[in-house]
Every structure is written in C-alpha cells, then in structure tokens.
C-alpha cells in the first residue's frame, strides 16, 4: 500500500489508473456516471428536438447559425480529445512532463472552444436579439448548448486544479486514476458535442 510514493519507471504497472482498488473504483464510478449523463443529455436533446420549431415568430436556427464558427469549435474540441489521448499515452509510459505538456494543450484548446461559444452567444443576442427568453426554441437551444458549455467549464476547472496540484509531485498511483478519469470525462464532452453539432447546427441548417 505504498501508493503515496512517486513512481519510477521500474515499478510502474501497466495500467496505473487501475492498479489500486481506489483507482479501479474511480474508473468504474466515472464510467457509470457517464451512463447517467447520457440520459441527462438525452433529456436535453429530446426537449430541444421537441421545441426546435417553436420560434414564436423569432429567428429560427436556419436564420442564425453560422457554420464557420461551429466548424472551428468542432475542430478545437476534437483536437483536444486527441491531445488528451496523447497525455494518457505518456502516462502509460510514465513520462510525466510530456503528459503535462499535452494536458496543457488540451486545456488551451478547451479555453479556445469556450471563447468561441461565448462569442457565439453574444453574437446571437446582440445581432439577432435571440435570447433565452425570446421563444421556447431559444430556451431549449441555450439550455442544451449551455449545459454542454457548463460541462466544459467544469472539466477545465478539474484539469487545471489537477495540474496545479500535481505539478511538483509527479505521477503516482494516487493521482493516476484522477488524470485518467478526467480524460474519460473530457472525451464524453466531445461525444456530446458531436451530437450537438450534428443535431443542433447541421440539422438546423438543413431545416
């Protein structure tokens, strides 16, 4: 039970995130949580789909959505998914510095995504007068996309706290599961975004 000692490559287990019981528990716990999140987002998507034509005379998705920005956001988030895969790759090779470097890039891309989203909302509100209150469609749109954005904010806070906390102590069996569960959560955010850009933006544009 010497899990508070830093790892050296000699004693590194193959899957550091699942080497301890605590790690295994965290791993499964987060996966199960994601199972619940699936239903949470399904409820939001369902609500959005039910209300997508309820524009109450206001702007519709076809009028306001701009594909360029959404494409940029998609690229940012997809790439951040890959960079966190790279981080986990370096975790398995017990290369802490490279892992942190890739996580740093992940955070950077995440912040970029968030900035785009804020700009997007600002743009809709000021240029189209399309708000949370203007129609049932508006409420559903901002709630669905906003919940996803909230998940991004939470994920970023998690990542930054993790990186700051462990910057000086290196990888060990106590924090490896924490990094790993973060990466799972981050991938899931990407999964949700894939459906958002498909269902909300692309299908919205098609009509």
């Amino acid at each position: 039970m010497s899990h508070d000692h830093s790892l050296n490559p000699e004693t590194m287990p193959q899957e550091p995130e699942k080497a301890t019981l605590e790690g295994k528990n965290k791993f499964l716990g987060l996966w199960f949580f994601l199972g619940g999140e699936t239903v949470l987002f399904a409820s939001l998507f369902g609500t959005y789909l039910a209300l997508r034509n309820s524009t109450a005379g206001g702007p519709s998705g076809q009028d306001i959505f701009g594909l360029e920005l959404v494409f940029l956001m998609t690229m940012l988030l997809l790439t951040s998914s890959l960079t966190s895969v790279y981080a986990m790759y370096h975790m398995k090779n017990n290369d802490f510095k490279k892992m942190h470097l890739w996580l740093g890039i992940t955070a950077f891309l995440g912040i970029g995504f968030l900035a785009c989203e804020i700009y997007e909302f600002y743009h809709y509100i000021t240029d189209f007068g399309f708000t949370f209150r203007s129609s049932a469609f508006g409420s559903a749109f901002y709630t669905l996309v906003g919940f996803h954005g909230g998940h991004v904010v939470f994920g970023l806070s998690w990542l930054i706290a993790l990186m700051v906390r462990n910057a000086k102590r290196g990888l060990n069996l106590y924090n490896a599961p924490k990094y790993y569960t973060f990466s799972l959560y981050w991938h899931f955010i990407d999964v949700v975004w894939v459906f958002i850009f498909t269902v909300v933006y692309l299908m919205g544009k098609v009509g």
């Binding site: 994601l34 699936t38 239903v39 409820s43 369902g46």
Partner: peptide
C-alpha cells in the same frame, strides 16, 4: 462500462423517441 453506457443509451433512446 460498456453495459452501463448501453443501458444509458437505451434509456436515452426511449426519452428522445418520446419527446
């Protein structure tokens, strides 16, 4: 994990279908 994700997908599909 796969079982719980598919469980979630099952509930999710029902929810979306209904709404």
């Amino acid at each position: 994990p796969a079982m719980m994700i598919y469980g979630g997908v099952f509930a999710a599909l029902l929810t979306i279908a209904a709404l």
